[in-house]
Each structure stands twice: as C-alpha cells, then as structure tokens.
Design a protein around this nucleic acid. Structure first.
Lengths: 120, 120
DNA sequence: CAGGATCCAAAGCGATACTG
DNA sequence: CAGTATCGCTTTGGATCCTG
C-alpha cells in the first residue's frame, strides 16, 4: 500500500500502528516516562491497576515499536530502566493532549452519561 | 476524588474517560465523522474491518459519552445520521494529531519492529 | 529487582439469522 | 436501512508461583 495511506483501510500500516497505540496502558506508560526514566517495579507501583503481566507485555510492545528503550544496569540485584526514545518523545506530546482532554472534559462526559442513562 | 485528578490512579474519572477513548474503533469513527454526518451503513462500509456489532456498540458508547448525536429521519426506510457534538468536535483535533502521528512515523515504527525482531 | 510460566475465568468478537 | 439477538470461539487478563 502506497502513501498517502488510507487509515480506514484494513491492513493499512498506519492503522496497525494506531491499533497498538490506542491502548490505555500504553498511553499511561508513555505518559509516565515523559518526565524521567522509570524502573519496572516503579511503573508497576505508579500505574495503579496494571498487572505485572500486562505491564511486561506493554513494555515489550512499546520497545519493539521503538518508542522506548530498555537499559540494564549491572547492579545487584539488576536494575532495568525504561526511557522514551526520540520516537517516543515525538509521540508523547500527542499523548499529553489526549490525556489533557480527558481531564478537561471529563465532567461534560460524566454529565452526558448521566443524562443518557436517565433518558434511556 | 477531587481535582487535580491523578490519571495514574485507578478509578480516576479521567482514566475512565481515557479507557473509553483509547479504542481503535472509537478513534476511527470520530475521525470519519469530522467532515460530515454519516449514516450507519456508510460507516460500516468506510471503516474496513469493523463488524456491525462492534460498530453499533461503539456508536452507543460515543453517544452515551456525549461525543456524537444520533439523528433519525422519518424516511422510508428510516435514515439515521451520526454527527459530532460540540464535545466531540473538541476532541477530534486531538484524534487528528494522533492519527497523523501514526501516518507520519509509521515507517520508523515498522523499521524498529524489523530491527527488534531480527535482533531478538 | 525484573520478569517468565502457568492456569483459569471473563470478556470480546465474528458470523449468522432475524426484525421493523 | 438500521439495527438486535444468539452462539461459539478466541483472546485477554488477573492471580499465583517461580527464577536469576
């Protein structure tokens, strides 16, 4: 498939990328990493509700996509730091506005939900 | 939970909103509606790969969240148009930059994937 | 500390058939 | 056209235990 890509098409590479990123946990991880590199268990503690398994999977996917780097330090016990790559940095601004929208308009959304649930 | 909301917290309302929106199909639907109101089957045709069931569910969720409106015209057979609300409009710009990022950086992502898969 | 392996329950989804 | 209903399967996800 040649550019310009049609994101409405199945198998469009852009849509596969979108698939991967349109994920709650991935967004939260990227957001958490934007200030500083963070270690595995710290992420696990900070992002409430994520399981160890899912965090591990999410980190692997993001690393595979080139959005974050995994850096191992030979301490005892071993230390692993996750950090955004340049590519990840280029995405994080978008993630920011997305999360910011959620915070900003969440009252309106909750109101709409209440109205919808009451009406239907 | 009082503002400022902590999006890393479980049960944070902002995170519930994020949950809902961090969905591939929802993003594609919102994107598709930004130019014009669209009917059910048109959406079904345009957004390749979505099933009727999932499209229906997605539309209901977005309507419940106040992001789009469902307008019924008494034609024969009945016509239903989905359109963005003001709230939906306020979100769509963010969705745009998100989708745009995917298109712009997808080559880098695919390259990173190939590298990762080859290395590991 | 940083995960991998396993088990199991629950949710999600596609396909199909049907309705007003 | 615009959906709803049902079925069966696949996937996901949490919980738990284990390792270097």
């Amino acid at each position: 498939m040649a550019p310009p890509y049609n994101i409405y098409e199945d198998q469009c590479p852009a849509r596969q990328v979108l698939d991967r990123l349109a994920d709650k946990w991935a967004l939260l991880v990227l957001d958490r990493l934007q200030k500083e590199p963070v270690r595995f268990n710290q992420l696990h503690r900070d992002i409430k509700g994520i399981s160890q398994k899912v965090l591990s999977q999410t980190l692997k996917k993001l690393e595979r996509d080139g959005l974050l780097s995994r850096c191992v330090f030979a301490t005892v016990p071993v230390t692993v730091e996750y950090a955004l790559t340049d590519l990840g940095q280029s995405l994080v601004q978008t993630v920011n506005t997305f999360a910011h929208w959620a915070e900003l308009h969440m009252d309106a959304v909750l109101l709409a939900q209440a109205r919808y649930d009451g009406t239907v």
